[in-house]
Design a protein around this nucleic acid. Structure first.
Length: 787
RNA sequence: GGAGGCAUAGUCUAAUGGUAGGACGGCGCCUUUACACGGCGCAAGCCUGGGUUCGAUUCCCUGUGCCUCCACCA
């Protein structure tokens, strides 16, 4: 039994045995109350780092706690492999593109490639000890998920919630697709702010002179004294010669540039607002590839055209000023390309009209931590566009739609025929106009349009009778804070539109795992720490210990020392087990009694209050404080209690055994959610038989009432412990070994019960009453040692 | 520009309207039969300024710095 703990051997063996024995299996027909978790399906994008381990472990703490509380835990796992990130991964790995390869061939390649990654991910998650039921695994590109996603679309289209509209869309010229507001990020670019002379004394400062040909109006602020008089005038656009009106609008900042703005279709969001508000002409200057469409610049790249136009303006003396500036522009978050606005036919889901309702649902959700709610609210309040769900890409869930070649009307697939790929199939009916000739929709759905359906996917919506009803609304949505405005929000949208309800009761929002300096981990920065490397060195339990080292919602930097602390704890647990087993080979199966000895009653009282605290903290999803409570208790157990009882153990006092076992088992159970391997290993070796479960992870969570609590014992026990501490310091001060024999302890007043334990723990022969030279903290008594 | 979070020893991190706890690291003592991957001990800390208060690290305001998210970006 003794010997070192070999975490590598144990972790590999247990991971395999949990899987083989179905320890985490969800009971389809079980009677126990269901606890359903809407696990985040990680994007297959190539890299796994300890940040993933950080947030998934936090959800797992809760899952394991709930399981031990007797819930039938529904804890699935999914892979999000249907969208642009996956496509880009494959393009990068194989240095090819879907266009080059052909759509069919490329899709097959993506499928094969993602399978490899999925296996790799699965191994890592299993190693980390995430207690998901792998039989509930899903992939967002699977036929089943495509069916659900298409079904959702058809239902929304049927209600006119999903609509197709030609409208300015945010466009990435590199990826050649429309993208959503969510996929934008900011980047700073150097640029030139150029003041251009228009006709009639109008001067306009712009960073985008190449949009001159798309200029459809000139805007000034209607309250701007120096410019307001120009409202209503016709102005000629330089180089291009077309006439445009001057319009007054409050959105113009009179202090910026010259206080005059050109409205081009389209340079930015404000242009779009003006275009809509004033019914302006549409002049499209840039095509899907980011090339110019108008005038002699046709075919030029945006930047070339910009240079060319500046050159010509200069030749004509129309450039009045030129300044180097750094300005922030919106770029596509995946490829860092400056976005453009193009007019395209896109599918949208209308939700601007239900903003208030969505904000209300956010209020109803039980957020952990609470302040994350605000982010959701701000996001929803700030929405300006309906949800654009179509993408001009290749790999993803197709729209089950064709368009009639004759009348242009969309024809939707039959629900019974789903999933449908319109590129390979034809509609089963004629168009209302009688035509049988159709053009398939070639766009695919945005990945969020599908991943927003995870509760439906988990519940095998509309096929599996009863499962959806059993798990929905789900109990918990665990996820990181960065995607509150994406995944959490869109899931609420879909859930509300399809069921009228919130998809879950609670949300547990995790922070990010950062590098040791507190910076986000990025492949490009080269600061990625891979879980498997950490597991190799310290073990999964230690990695998880780090994940439990900060509160829900807060970021944590990756600290090696937190792993060291975890390793030490693991070692300590192992050695406590060695100690107990060495003296008592079999675990006690006695019911915990009150305890005769004061230190027994003391530790039982602390145990009772600790269980109570830890349980209620877990109920509030505060795994972090819970962990600290257990940890604190465990060190009291080791450093004080075990020292107190050693003399009785060696002396053959049989009454100690049941307390050692009872309390240690409670500690193991409370640590089991955090350190599943070491706790289960000890449980299997020592407690499985007397406790009656095959694994600690399906054993019963400790009950505080089963450990006798007594206020006086608790207080008196602490007095005894304080004296012990003081004696330790005295022995230390005279360079004595802590167990070296001492003739006599002089103490200013009787301690009463517990004196024997002090004598036993500190190897003291006798205790006498008298004033001592040293004070015991807080107790107002003094002591002295006579050797 | 708006919103949210954070600021505590060399490092990471708690609690608290009245002596700031823990971990890692440092230093020292103890070779003690669960553990030297150990035990015990020591040193070391509340971002700036203002307010409320008998008293502020804590509550309020301000500044500074860091991290998110959003908006703007002619």
């Amino acid at each position: 039994m003794s010997g070192k703990y070999d975490f590598k051997e144990v972790e590999a063996r247990l991971a395999e045995s949990w899987e083989r024995n179905g320890v985490y299996r969800f009971e389809r027909n079980g009677n126990a109350k269901v606890y359903a978790i809407d696990t985040p399906p990680p994007t297959i994008s190539g890299l796994i780092h300890v940040g993933h381990a950080y947030s998934y472990s936090q959800a797992d703490f809760v899952a394991r706690y709930k399981r031990m509380r007797g819930y039938n835990v529904f804890y699935p796992f999914g892979f999000d492999n249907n969208g642009i990130p996956t496509e880009i991964l494959v393009e990068r790995n194989y240095k090819t593109t879907a266009e080059d390869m052909g759509r069919e061939k490329f899709s097959r390649l993506v499928e094969e490639e993602t399978k490899k990654y999925e296996e790799m991910y699965r191994r890592t998650w299993t190693q980390i000890g995430i207690s998901v039921d792998w039989s509930l695994r899903y992939s967002t590109i699977s036929k089943e998920v495509q069916r659900i996603s298409q079904l959702s679309f058809l239902m929304l289209a049927n209600e006119r919630r999903a609509y197709r509209k030609e409208s300015p869309s945010i466009w990435c010229p590199k990826c050649k697709t429309a993208i959503s507001q969510m996929e934008l990020k900011d980047m700073d670019f150097k640029s030139r702010f150029i003041t251009i002379q228009f006709s009639d004394g109008i001067q306009i400062a712009t960073t985008r002179p190449e949009l001159l040909p798309a200029c459809v109006a000139v805007m000034v602020n209607d309250k701007d004294e120096k410019n307001a008089e120009k409202i209503g005038m016709d102005v000629t656009v330089p180089l291009f010669g077309n006439k445009v009106k001057v319009i007054g609008d409050r959105r113009v900042d009179p202090e910026k540039g010259t206080g005059v703005v050109m409205c081009c279709t389209f340079g930015d969001l404000t242009d779009i607002e003006w275009y809509k508000a004033y019914n302006l002409e549409l002049r499209i200057a840039i095509d899907e590839d980011g090339r110019m469409l108008l005038g002699k610049y046709k075919g030029m790249k945006i930047r070339e055209a910009r240079e060319e136009i500046i050159k010509e303006l200069k030749e004509k003396g129309l450039v009045l000023d030129e300044k180097e500036i750094v300005h922030t522009v919106n770029v596509h978050e995946r490829c860092n390309t400056e976005i453009e606005f193009l007019v395209k036919k896109q599918w949208y889901i209308r939700y601007l009209d239900i903003k208030e309702k969505l904000i209300g649902l956010g209020e109803e959700l039980d957020w952990h931590p609470e302040y994350m709610k605000v982010r959701y609210k701000n996001w929803v309040s700030g929405l300006q566009w309906d949800w654009s769900i179509s993408r001009q890409r290749y790999y993803g869930v197709p729209f089950p739609v064709w368009y009639c070649r004759k009348c242009g009307e969309p024809v939707f697939a039959d629900i019974g025929a789903l999933p449908v790929n319109p590129l390979e199939q034809q509609p089963e009916k004629r168009c209302v106009c009688g035509s049988e000739s159709f053009e398939p929709e070639t766009d695919i759905m945005d990945t969020w349009a599908t991943s927003s359906l995870t509760p439906m996917i988990n519940g095998r919506w509309k096929t599996d009778s009863g499962l959806f009803e059993r798990i929905f609304p789900m109990d918990l949505r665990p996820q990181a804070h960065d995607i509150i405005s994406f995944w959490l929000f869109t899931t609420i949208v879909k859930s509300y539109l399809h069921t009228g309800k919130l998809p879950w009761k609670s949300a547990l929002i995790s922070g990010h795992g950062l590098d040791s300096k507190g910076a986000p981990m990025h492949k490009s920065v080269g600061n990625i720490v891979e879980p498997k490397v950490v597991i190799e060195r310290y073990g999964a339990d230690a990695l998880r210990w780090w994940a439990s080292s900060s509160a829900p919602g807060s970021d944590a930097s990756f600290q090696e020392k937190e792993l060291v602390a975890g390793s030490k704890l693991i070692n300590k647990l192992w050695n406590v087990n060695n100690f107990i087993t060495m003296n008592y080979p079999e675990a006690s199966d006695a019911k915990e009694g009150a305890g005769k000895n004061i230190v027994d009653r003391w530790i039982l009282s602390i145990c009772s209050t600790t269980i109570e605290k830890v349980t209620s903290l877990f109920e509030q999803y505060d795994y972090y404080t819970a962990r600290r409570e257990v940890e604190r208790f465990f060190w009291i157990f080791c450093d004080d209690y075990l020292e107190f009882v050693k003399y009785r153990v060696y002396g053959g006092d049989a009454s100690v055994r049941q307390h050692l076992d009872g309390v240690f088992l409670a500690i193991l159970k409370m640590l089991a959610p955090f350190m599943p391997y070491i706790t289960d290993e000890i449980y299997a070796k020592r407690y499985s038989k007397v406790d009656g479960s095959t694994s600690i992870h399906v054993s019963k969570w400790p009950v505080s009432g089963e450990f006798a609590y007594n206020k006086e014992s608790l207080e008196h026990g602490w007095r005894v412990a304080k004296v012990l501490e003081s004696v330790r310091i005295l022995k230390h001060n005279i360079k004595m070994a802590l167990n070296a024999p001492v003739k006599e302890l002089v103490i200013s007043e009787r301690i009463g019960e517990g004196e024997d334990d002090i004598k036993g723990a500190m190897n003291i022969s006798s205790i006498s009453i008298g004033e001592g030279s040293a004070k015991v903290d807080d107790l107002g008594i003094s002591i002295e040692l006579r050797t």
